[in-house]
Design a protein around this nucleic acid. Sequence first.
DNA 1: TCCATAAATTGACCGCGGTCAATTCATCTA
DNA 2: TAGATGAATTGACCGCGGTCAATTTATGGA
Lengths: 199, 199
Amino acid sequence: MMDAIQPRAVKTRARLLATAQAVIAETGYGAMRVDEVVRRAGVAKGTFFAHFKDKDALMDMLIGAEMNHCLDALETGPAPRDTPALIQALGPLMALMTSERYVFDVILRHSGAAAREDIGPIAQALDRLVRQIASWITAGQFRHDADPELLAEGVQAFMAQAMALNFCALRGKQPLDARLAPFLTRWLSPETGLDPQGQ
Amino acid sequence: MMDAIQPRAVKTRARLLATAQAVIAETGYGAMRVDEVVRRAGVAKGTFFAHFKDKDALMDMLIGAEMNHCLDALETGPAPRDTPALIQALGPLMALMTSERYVFDVILRHSGAAAREDIGPIAQALDRLVRQIASWITAGQFRHDADPELLAEGVQAFMAQAMALNFCALRGKQPLDARLAPFLTRWLSPETGLDPQGQ
DNA sequence: TCCATAAATTGACCGCGGTCAATTCATCTA
DNA sequence: TAGATGAATTGACCGCGGTCAATTTATGGA
């Protein structure tokens, strides 16, 4: 009995999403204001929150979608067969995740889901990433004396740390890749952990 | 020429700090409100922000101080000589860092310093932690074929990931220690990465 | 065609962090 | 001791995310 969403609601939601994307395209994620979006979309503020739990939920969707585009590309492209190739493959995704401090913060906030039902797009994308990395590890020239899933989660941990350090003036403007390399080399290399340089 | 801070300012600042601590002791970090603190301290809101750059800066101090107490205990106590002991030693600090979602968020936000001059207490404490772990690694029964500093930073990355997953209903209510163990074992064990279980 | 019911939308309002021009207060100098 | 100078404090105000009772709009049944 009338529990279906009406067409106008679908339209409104679509307009809000489109407007938000337009605003973000102009000013970036961090500068997006709910007031600005609803003003441009020509709806009341309350309507926004009728369609999205909060501002973060919208960000989750939009950023998650962008991450998934990146992941699509990764899935399509050739599988990296060693650590340097892996780091290179991860480049675009990490660039996206660190494009703004605000974006990285949103991702961190959504990297774990609070409850079974509210796994957002970002959490899903990160999960997809781990599975992708695990499959690469299985197929490529990496160590195979450990659960690929575990290794993949480790890669994610190192990625997060490297990206966090990216917003830190201290550790120099060393590029992400360079900061990540020593960790991943040691974590993934098939030669049982040896490294003549000790570095 | 009068550029010294006046005694009353010192008093005011001290009263704000004490009041904030009292409020936090009652309600927790996340529920602390600047309005509540200034009301109880009997000062105007503007005064608060004359003494602390923003709310986060105060949190940085208070949480950083608590972390340093933990680190004092770690420095005093016996050095863990293997991975299980290391995990156990880190327990209290991780418990503090994950005592509230809000606390963990503040720590993440301050884990990297934006500029040379504004390294806050939390960033300092985390740096201190890495150096402490590195010294343990050097002294204990851990792998010595890699830079202890690098290994210590890796430990920090795994800690962060384990703690983040702590706020996630998915990965079960598995205790922090258990989530951390497989990573640290593989990362730190002196036997060159082998593990009969592959897990 | 008209009404009942629920979905969709509205906008005034709130909470809370943060700002700043104005004011008060302490200290130095003539 | 009377200005003069800057430190310290004040509180009205703002920006922005989020709420909710009230109102409008769409839809199914008689």
